[in-house]
């Protein structure tokens, strides 16, 4: 297997007295979709926010392309080429697709907004992702369906030559057809060589697009396995009990002394 693009080693995170993440090892590989699964409260979003630079880590290393990096905030992480698509999307309804895709990073020419350049690049990006459901990049986001919004949020994340895209439950609120669109898009991102992290509670989605599955159980990595080596029920067991057959955490951490 190729070198991981991004790697966390031995990461711990506490909020006050609550120890949320224990010795997490996590890796994102180029061209692969890594599914991050786990029960409610297992620590998935916390892990994503640590990767995104929103939370600091108590201990542990953050490696990017094999080298340890210091990240002190979302801007540092964005500069590495890591983008996060949050579950609650974060788009401005009153702005159009192009304006949203460039929000906070507008291109300017002579101090004024360079609308033609931004519009052209927005179209190019959407077209290169084979997005055909959006009719115009000048449509306001308010007029888009849930799936189309998700598409815009993802396109926004890849606009910046990003190397890694983290998606926190991108299909949670979507219907069948729209989930389809988003999963196809996730797959295409990986096929273009990006490292993709997909958080999902839907095993169908996970087994469809993921190359690897990392299961979290009560803030620990229960398993990190290629999708083809496990089946549905094993993953469900990993999520709910932290172990399944010879996979998983050897002793139950809930009762183990920490």
């Amino acid at each position: 297997m190729s070198e991981p693009l991004l790697e966390l080693r031995g990461v711990n995170k506490s909020f006050g007295v609550v120890h949320v993440l224990h010795d997490i090892d996590f890796a994102v590989y180029p061209g692969q979709v890594t599914a991050l699964v786990g029960d409610n409260g297992a620590g998935k979003s916390t892990l994503v926010k640590i990767i995104a630079g929103i939370y600091g880590r108590d201990t542990g290393d953050y490696l990017f392309e094999g080298k340890p990096v210091e990240v002190h905030g979302p801007r540092d992480v964005a500069a590495l080429g890591v983008e996060v698509v949050y579950q609650d999307l974060a788009l401005c309804d009153n702005l159009d697709i192009t304006q949203n895709m460039f929000l906070g990073r507008e291109q300017t020419k002579g101090g004024t907004l360079d609308e033609p350049a931004m519009e052209a690049r927005a179209r190019e990006t959407l077209a290169s992702l084979s997005v055909r459901t959006v009719k115009s990049v000048r449509q306001t986001v308010a007029s888009l369906s849930g799936g189309q919004r998700q598409t815009v949020a993802i396109a926004k994340a890849v606009l910046w030559n990003s190397k890694i895209v983290l998606l926190d439950e991108p299909t949670a609120a979507l219907g069948v057809a729209q989930t389809r669109q988003v999963l196809d898009l996730v797959r295409r991102l990986a096929d273009r060589g990006l490292g993709v992290v997909l958080i999902s509670h839907n095993m169908g989605d996970v087994f469809e697009v993921a190359d690897r599955i990392t299961a979290l159980y009560l803030g620990r990595v229960a398993a990190d396995v290629p999708t083809k080596d496990v089946n549905h029920s094993q993953v469900v067991e990993l999520i709910t009990a932290g172990r399944s057959g010879n996979l998983g955490i050897s002793e139950n951490p809930a009762t183990a002394s920490v």
Partner: peptide
């Protein structure tokens, strides 16, 4: 942007 969705604006830096 801030008037439309302050949280989105914040996350956009």
């Amino acid at each position: 942007a801030v008037g439309g969705n302050a949280e989105a604006a914040r996350r956009a830096g």
